[in-house]
Amino acid sequence: MHLTFIHLTLIKASLRRVSLLAFLCLLNACAATGVREATHNMQLPRHAELTSTPFFPQAQYQCGPAALATALSAANIQVTPDQLTPEVYMPSRQGSLQIEMMAAARRHGAVSVKIPPQLDAVMQEVAAGNVVVVMQNLGFSWVPSWHYAVVVGYDLDKELLWLRSGTYERFEMSLSAFQRTWARSEHWAFVALPPGKLPASVSADEVAKALVAYEKNASVAARKQAYQAAVSEWPDHQVLLMGLGNAAYAANDLPLAAVTFQHMIEVHPASAAAYNNLANVLLAQKHIAQAETVAEKGLTVAGDDENLKSQLAQTLVEIRQSQK
């Protein structure tokens, strides 16, 4: 029994070494794949660096506020890490939560958008002039050392990447090393942009999701500006059109609101909400007959949607009362 126990122990130790080796090989393979895809992406400039990006040396555990201040300052939103610390830093965790980082960016007037979890997406943003806040684990999965940094440059030929990180204004990492440390955060990264500027790597649906979150704290003018830029890029997207029409109406830009909702009806004819909103805009413009026709059409489109039917019925009541 004693010999058998030793034998099993040796086998288990060997298996642990093999498992660790396999795990490291897997990490290397994943890193190599991401690097290979990025370096072979012919749509990317071979080199880009945003040298004018501000730098805030990061004290221990304060990398979140410093990274966010860097990104916001790069977007011409002047704020310091000290101002951001009460908003994002949690002493109990000795760090900052990802969701709070993005929410704080919005509170300070930026559109915060998660980017795709690919290395070449980071480079797309940098090449477009957008710094990227990334989360890394500089330790191991079983002994994590979470860290926020800001990607400001890369060189595909040299397979290098530069970050504002910790106390280093231009911290240099190989693409493979960055890919490994970034992978441990499930490739979490976001950009913080001024309203009117769009991310380079993000889909229309993700931009729409970001703008819906952004508009809760944004001024009417900023909402309108943000949605106008998005609709210019994706002119038929239903959520973006609704957002622009509502923002234009709130800004009392009735001609833009009318044009937007009219286009929305043309490309999304089953949207009863678009009919209701257009009818309200036409009513505000004193186009009573047109407003009534649009609202009645909306009622037929609403089908079994009791909420929209109720809204359209109320709109019709207001239209008919205005005729008296």
Rank of each mutant, 00 (worst) to 15 (best):
L254I: 03
S112R: 03
L26K: 12
P255L: 05
Q290S: 13
Q94D: 04
L283I: 11
W146T: 02
A149N: 05
Q314D: 07
Y168R: 15
G129I: 03
E159K: 03
R184I: 01
N28I: 10
N277K: 10
A22L: 15
N252A: 09
A274I: 07
F140W: 15
K12D: 10
A258H: 09
L299C: 06
M1H: 13
S203L: 03
L193V: 09
Q58I: 01
V111G: 10
G243E: 00
M264K: 13
A71D: 00
S219C: 09
S185H: 07
T39Q: 05
K324I: 07
R93P: 08
R180F: 06
A274E: 00
V301W: 01
E87T: 02
L8P: 04
I99R: 14
G139P: 02
V259G: 15
L254G: 05
S185Q: 02
I77P: 12
R170I: 03
T300V: 02
Y227W: 15
Q179E: 15
Y214C: 06
E87Y: 10
F190W: 05
G196N: 07
Q58R: 06
M135L: 13
T315L: 14
L211N: 12
F55T: 02
D236K: 13
K158T: 10
L10R: 15
V202Y: 05
L10V: 10
L72M: 14
E169Y: 04
A284M: 13
A128F: 02
S165V: 00
K224T: 11
R320T: 05
P91Y: 01
